[in-house]
């Protein structure tokens, strides 16, 4: 039968493509920020900071369009869940972009300080993990893949472990105040990456809601959560 709301459904499709592209943008920003730290590349760090305006502009555009869609089209059922998920994921991705900027700025603040290869290696590993998580969450969104979305909390475990060990690596630099200064800043980088991992889990929760209609937190800071 013919789709009686084709214009509206075309717009929903366009919004979904926008959010997937924004996921790519945010993931790339984190990847470049981590790369800048690991390879001490200030130009790359500046590129991440400059590039955030594009992410913010997209965020505002998607936000405006979802609001208009709610006001003008009163979506229901799967359409409503998609609009709601886009609103949430949009915010998570904008925050992810901000974390990339934080990481890039932390590099620029410390670019002249001595550092440690061990800690840089740890940050590289965390970066790979969280960018992988973000891409998996967005892939689950694109494919409506519940199973993949449910894998995100497990993927977050090593990130949390590395983050908890980060300050110990920084303390190893205590003999040299300049290196320690760098290490303490890198501890903040680690924290920013841990937050990106959490944002990816939050996006996966939205995917779960989109598919099942039931919103549940995959992780809870104050309680153990059992997943199917």
């Amino acid at each position: 039968m013919p789709d009686t709301r084709r214009g509206f459904h075309d717009e929903l499709g366009a919004l979904q493509r926008e959010i997937l592209e924004m996921g790519e943008q945010a993931g790339n920003a984190v990847q470049h920020a981590v790369h800048a730290v690991v390879f001490r590349n200030s130009e790359e760090a500046q590129g991440v900071i400059d590039g955030d305006d594009a992410i913010d502009a997209r965020y505002l555009d998607i936000d405006q369009r979802t609001l208009e869609t709610l006001a003008l089209q009163t979506p229901v059922a799967a359409d409503l869940r998609l609009v709601s998920a886009i609103i949430h994921v949009n915010l998570h991705l904008e925050r992810t972009g901000d974390q990339a900027v934080n990481i890039a700025k932390l590099h620029l603040l410390t670019e002249d300080l001595p550092g440690s290869d061990a800690m840089r290696e740890q940050i590289r590993e965390m970066g790979d993990l969280v960018v992988g998580m973000l891409r998996s969450a967005m892939e689950a969104f694109d494919r409506r893949d519940l199973e993949l979305s449910l894998r995100l909390p497990k993927m977050d475990d090593p990130v949390d472990r590395l983050n908890r060990a980060s300050h110990l690596e920084a303390l190893k630099l205590a003999d040299d105040p300049s290196a320690l200064d760098w290490g303490l800043h890198m501890n903040l980088v680690s924290r920013a990456l841990e937050r990106v991992g959490d944002q990816a889990v939050d996006i996966a929760e939205q995917v779960g809601f989109l598919i099942t209609g039931e919103f549940r937190e995959f992780t809870d800071a104050s309680h153990e959560v059992e997943l199917p």
Binding site: M1, P2, D3, H9, P75, V76, A77, A78, G213
Partner: peptide
Amino acid sequence: KIFTTPEDQRTEDYVTGRFG
């Protein structure tokens, strides 16, 4: 429930305007 998570695909298609 009908307007957020209908169970039948035909309901989903109707309320979302995929046919009318």
